[in-house]
Design a protein around this nucleic acid. Structure first.
Length: 156
DNA sequence: GCCAACGTTGGC
DNA sequence: GCCAACGTTGGC
């Protein structure tokens, strides 16, 4: 069954929520994911209309900064075919692409960042993959209750 | 910049 | 198939 709520990580030095806001149609392709688990989520389960928490990693502060929506379902990540691209992967063939991406569109920037430390401190959010030991997934499913809780926290 | 945790690679 | 070495992620 397709899941409806997600969290994606981005390093704001590379691509931030403000960069997304400035992008045409506030829509971007989510390229460069080179992890099979994350790839499988995008390929199999991220459906149009799915809601996505946009998370800033390697930043100050670290945390959830916005809400997006899936507007295009899994298709080949063409950056894997380009030898000049940072995410080039010679193993990925055009007729049999290894890597997949989706398009996401900005819905809203949160009024404030919901920080990682707040998430860790919230008893309702203890099951999030995000805070599980050593979790390095850059695309992960989130429960509706967790999604709603984070949005609620951003309004306080 | 450090380093723990993780995924991938490659020798055997 | 095992596992050491290596590269990457990402919080601090």
């Amino acid at each position: 069954m397709a899941k409806k709520y997600w969290l994606v990580k981005s390093e704001p030095d590379v691509f931030s929520i403000d960069d997304l806001a400035k992008t045409k149609n506030q829509t971007t392709y989510w390229d460069g994911v080179r992890n099979y688990q994350a790839r499988n989520f995008m390929r199999d389960e991220m459906k149009i209309g799915g809601k996505v928490l946009f998370y800033h990693s390697n930043s100050d502060p670290v945390g959830v900064v916005g809400i997006c929506e899936v507007v295009k379902e899994g298709y080949p990540d063409f950056t894997a075919f380009d030898p000049e691209d940072k995410h080039f992967d010679p193993k990925s063939k055009k007729n049999e692409p290894t890597w997949i991406m989706v398009d996401i569109k900005l819905v809203e920037k949160l009024k404030r960042t919901v920080t990682l430390s707040e998430i860790k401190a919230n008893p309702k959010l203890q099951n999030m993959k995000l805070i599980q030991r050593g979790s390095r997934l850059s695309v992960m499913p989130v429960d509706k209750s967790e999604f709603d809780e984070i949005v609620k926290m951003s309004k306080k």
